[in-house]
Design a protein around this nucleic acid. Structure first.
Length: 658
DNA sequence: TGCGCAGGCGAAATCTTATT
DNA sequence: AATAAGATTTCGCCTGCGCA
């Protein structure tokens, strides 16, 4: 295929800006066309077809992102070619290839280039999800090794995460370090020698670079070691500088001040934030992905535990209403669906095509992990509490949650309702409104795609230096592009403990380990005031940053504190042994002046367990649901030397509390 | 206790880019 | 086009978990 040269860079402030850089691209027939089309080749991330057809016995569809799971599969996979196989292959690769010719036919010097590119990418990206419904994308491999819909959904979301990760990446590839001889190629001696000898060589111009590099390598040997070392150092410095900028682009965030945004660049050489077409990005990319998630969520919600997959049409106009009202173009291609079985859990074999996602969700059964006689708190909130105008918004948010998150939100709400009856307001760990704020800021083990994290960064802005925190903050789907505050900066959190607090627990746990943990916990926080030992509340926060608990404790001293409901250690009749044992152990902990609050808390916990029927999984937290720090501890053979992550305090406590 | 699964890690293979 | 660095991907191995 002939690739017309395109010397004009495409405009960087439209949808074209967020195209993923490729690790796999089409190869061109000639070096010249390869160089000329390098910019364009980044756009269509297509694997080389001939690679896929070398072995007709290998099912190439979707194999690149999948690892053989069973021993049999692994052995069958032995001998398969290693290496980078590309992201888009099979039907998806064919889909992109259909646009290749049209892509190359775009006249880079023609009028309305921006709108041409915009419409082109709208067509490609939008059309992808018109052609490949979520049921289709991973279907070839899914049928072989995925046993239920939940896992299927995870596979789809993982796949989309890969795509979105590409979208979040800065424009252009990461920098490379130039070798000394490469740096030396710009030296005047090399240029002189090249001019002197090239014409007499009579070689093809394609060999110019080769010839020049060989001259550089030859002449460099005659230079002093000091000069070579200088070239090496300069190359490394340039590389380190470019790498820093690149990494900042990945994890950074834009400043909130619009005036400063103009100085923030998208990747090392990309456009600045002010020129970035945020509306177009939301409309064309996030809108389409939102549709994908909506349909995915609705289908999975309705079919948990059912291995069959129904087709539920999504009201596309409704789905795009908030993204600019752009109507979605009808599918251009007819796709051979490999799997279309319309069976829902109630036996209805034909889901109503006209049913909106909202209706679908509201008629869905509660999540399976809830007792059958308990209405899902989330559903109750949507149907009974929220105004009509907010229902759709909330439903859309809920649909972006994975199953773990959904169950967790339900647990939080259920516990809220229970605690509301058990603990006075001023003793509640978190105010009701803050709970959801905390939850939405916590990085959970399997978060949904973080589609709205912008990868811009202002290196001058000290606020954006909390990159490691921001990169772990989950942002809800499709809100404003402003990232939330870091978890441990403005979010409500429990005050930090110091060594004296931890020593209270020394009767039950190893004091040295706790002291070590305390030093780790304090790494990310302001110094702990020693006033705690003088009777003042323990706090690592300023007055402007008081946590709810701190405020609660501050506002009630011992004399004004109401009597605890039950601090004697009595337990309700009929409670299981594990409640009795745990309560006894908890009450044995010496909490000093906090013993009254501690006893109230334990009492409330026992009542909470009673309300929930003393449900206690015999196997403990499963590997997926447990806090990441517990996994770390378990995987390290429960050694005491496990180093917790720096983000541990607020996150870990919240996870445990759940 | 044995098996399959899940995830981490290192090695190896492959791919892309930088240099004029 | 020569070359090597760095990124990406798969494979093989290991360990721990969950289950029967």
């Amino acid at each position: 295929m002939e690739h017309p040269p395109c010397s004009t860079e495409p405009p960087m402030n439209n949808i074209d800006d967020i195209r993923p850089p490729s690790s796999q691209v089409m190869r061109s027939d000639s070096a010249q066309s390869q160089a000329d089309s390098s910019q364009r080749r980044m756009d269509l991330n297509i694997s080389e077809p001939q690679n896929l057809n070398e072995d007709p016995n290998i099912d190439v569809v979707h194999q690149s992102n999948r690892r053989a799971k069973t021993k049999h599969e692994r052995q069958a996979a032995k001998g398969k070619e290693r290496g980078n196989q590309g992201k888009f292959s099979g039907e998806e690769g064919e889909y992109l290839e259909r646009y290749l010719e049209e892509f190359h036919d775009i006249d880079c010097d023609g009028p309305n280039l921006r709108s041409t590119y915009e419409s082109f990418w709208f067509k490609v990206i939008g059309g992808f999800w018109d052609v490949f419904k979520w049921q289709d994308v991973p279907i070839t491999q899914v049928e072989k090794d995925i046993k239920d819909v939940v896992k299927l959904k995870e596979a789809v979301v993982k796949r989309m995460n890969d795509v979105l990760a590409e979208l979040r990446r800065p424009q252009g590839p990461p920098p490379r370090r130039a070798q000394p001889w490469q740096m030396y190629m710009s030296n005047e001696r090399v240029a002189t020698e090249f001019e002197r000898t090239w014409d007499a060589l009579g070689k093809d111009p394609h060999f110019k670079l080769d010839f020049r590099s060989s001259i550089a390598k030859r002449l460099l040997k005659d230079e002093s070691d000091e000069y070579i070392a200088t070239l090496e150092r300069e190359g490394k410095e340039a590389y380190d500088k470019a790498l820093l900028k690149y990494n900042q682009g990945i994890v950074g965030s834009p400043p909130e001040d619009p005036a400063k945004q103009a100085d923030v660049h998208y990747g090392p050489t990309g456009p600045n934030f002010g020129d970035f077409d945020k509306t177009g990005f939301r409309r064309n990319v996030l809108g389409q992905f939102g549709r994908f998630l909506k349909s995915t969520r609705a289908n999975v919600e309705a079919n948990i535990g059912d291995t069959t997959i129904p087709i539920v049409e999504v009201d596309t106009n409704e789905a795009n209403k908030d993204e600019g009202g752009v109507e979605v173009q009808p599918p251009r291609f007819s796709v051979q669906h490999t799997r279309r079985r319309n069976i829902s859990s109630n036996g209805d074999s034909s889901p109503n095509p006209g049913m909106t996602v909202a209706e679908h969700t509201l008629t869905s059964p509660p999540p399976p992990n809830l007792p059958s006689n308990v209405l899902s708190p989330l559903q109750r909130q949507i149907t009974e509490i929220l105004l009509d105008a907010d229902q759709y918004k909330e439903i859309r948010r809920v649909q972006t949650l994975n199953d773990f998150e959904l169950a967790r939100e339900n647990t939080i709400m259920r516990n809220q309702e229970a605690l509301r009856h058990l603990i006075p307001d001023h003793l509640r760990l978190f105010p009701t409104d803050d709970l959801h704020t905390i939850f939405s800021s916590i990085n959970v083990p399997t978060p949904p795609p973080n589609v709205n994290v912008l990868i811009l960064r202002n290196t001058e802005d000290p606020v954006s230096n909390d990159a490691s925190i921001l990169s772990n903050v989950r942002i809800p789907m499709l809100p404003s592009p402003t990232p939330p505050a870091p978890v441990n900066a403005n979010s409500p959190t429990l005050p930090c403990l110091d060594n004296s607090d931890l020593s209270h627990l020394s009767t039950c746990f190893d004091a040295n380990a706790l002291a070590g943990a305390a030093s780790l916990l304090h790494e990310d926080h302001e110094p702990i005031t020693t006033a705690s030992s003088a009777g003042e509340p323990v706090s690592a926060h300023t007055a402007d940053d008081a946590s709810p608990l701190e405020s609660a404790v501050d506002s009630c001293d011992a004399s004004s504190m109401p009597a605890a409901n039950d601090v004697s250690g009595d337990v309700p009749a009929g409670c299981p042994d594990w409640i009795i044992n745990h309560q006894r152990r908890f009450l044995e902990v010496e909490m000093g002046e906090d013993s009254r609050v501690w006893a109230e808390l334990i009492s409330a916990w026992v009542q909470l367990e009673q309300l929930q029927g003393y449900q206690s999984p015999l196997t403990g937290l499963n590997a997926r649901s447990r806090p990441a720090d517990v996994s770390l501890w378990v995987q390290n053979a429960r050694k005491g030397s496990v180093v917790l992550r720096k983000s541990t305090p607020a996150v870990f406590q919240q996870q445990l509390w759940n």
